[in-house]
Design a protein around this nucleic acid. Structure first.
Lengths: 206, 206
DNA sequence: TAGATTGTTAATCGATTAACAATC
DNA sequence: TAGATTGTTAATCGATTAACAATC
């Protein structure tokens, strides 16, 4: 019971709340309310209170929430109040853009290992990682106890890469490959596919 | 009534179906079933049939769906059986990666106009577009009747850019800026925020 | 205190799923 | 024909929302 059976859809909103709290905090705002958050996010205040109630009581009647306190609590709940090592598979155009993107490291996700099958690229240093041969993947991932991976390989290679990653101990995969990958229940997958987002919106265009 | 009040969540699944049908088509498969699609996507076959039933009847009892036919129908429903011109705002590291990414054009979304506030970048040619001054944005977008935009500017500039885009006639926005933007009801927004996906998965990590 | 806002309950709303007649 | 699979109905399941007592 309790904290472990929170609906997945609620977990998915916590990063949105966190992002907004960071914004408010950087703007120097000390307190906020479910109403203010809701307005900023375009959702109802009741939903925010309900979501938070799964994890405890974080506010005060009459005054709302202390921004930095709620931010820290949500960080803790999400397990993002610590650093995570990340493996990146695929160092083509997309993989290189990902490796060079600074946004992961500032949020404490550090790309420590990069894998590619092209021997030409091996040894290249990027930000916090070095490009290694794909053959070393199982060893490096398990030795460094890496639990998070980003996939930036062609669709045709994604399932194979996924299987190897999971075998090596990876439990969370962010995939940029435009294909649904099959994973066991204990492994989590999220997809980034900008084209799909455009296609969805095209439906509403006249 | 009918086709226009299909739940948004159903529309969101159509691109997933389309992606899978393209895959099957490329693999040379002629027929498929709701069961096969469901298995590949990790969802129930009833859901797929229900989703499709909002738009018509596309299958045959006993044999299922003809892959190329269903693919074409879903493309048509989504309005992606035509080309779309796209504006890109922001030509920093992220914007450049987006402009150079070939995946949009192959799905008929063509980045025709790129805008940046840095005078140094103006005039640069990328794929199907040229970098223009941000000041020319309203004119170029309305003159070319561009309805789709991609935002790749810092969070602090996103709302301002959004307001200008909407004023110029944009109706669909794909935003890479890590902030929720406020838009009128007739404008659609989708977000790409890889860090949020990682944060969501971190919740489940031990 | 009076006003504001929380956390929670219960009602509403909407989405998913199981089941099956129809039929290829 | 017999087997397979659709499209659809009705039941189930789950998420959102409105309302309000509690209380800062």
């Amino acid at each position: 019971m309790g904290v472990r059976d929170v609906p997945d859809i609620v977990i998915g909103r916590l990063p949105i709340y966190l992002r907004t709290l960071n914004l408010l905090s950087e703007a120097g705002q000390e307190f906020t309310s479910s109403q203010e958050l809701g307005k900023r996010l375009g959702i109802g205040s009741a939903q925010i209170r309900k979501d938070l109630s799964h994890f405890g009581e974080f506010g005060k009647q009459g005054t709302g929430y202390e921004v930095s306190f709620l931010r820290d609590q949500i960080s803790r709940i999400l397990n993002v109040d610590r650093d995570w090592d990340v493996a990146l598979v695929g160092f083509g155009d997309l993989g290189q853009a990902i490796a060079n993107y600074g946004g992961f490291a500032t949020k404490r996700f550090h790309i420590r290992a990069i894998f590619d099958s092209d021997p030409q690229k091996i040894g290249e240093e990027v930000n916090e990682g070095v490009v290694e041969s794909i053959e070393k993947l199982p060893q490096i991932i398990s030795e460094n106890n890496i639990k998070v991976a980003i996939i930036a390989v062609p669709a045709g290679a994604a399932q194979e890469v996924t299987d190897v990653l999971i075998k090596a101990g990876v439990q969370a995969i962010l995939s940029y490959a435009p294909i649904t990958i099959i994973v066991p229940d204990n492994v989590h997958v999220q997809y980034i596919d900008p084209v799909m987002h455009l296609q969805k919106m095209a439906y509403y265009l006249t």
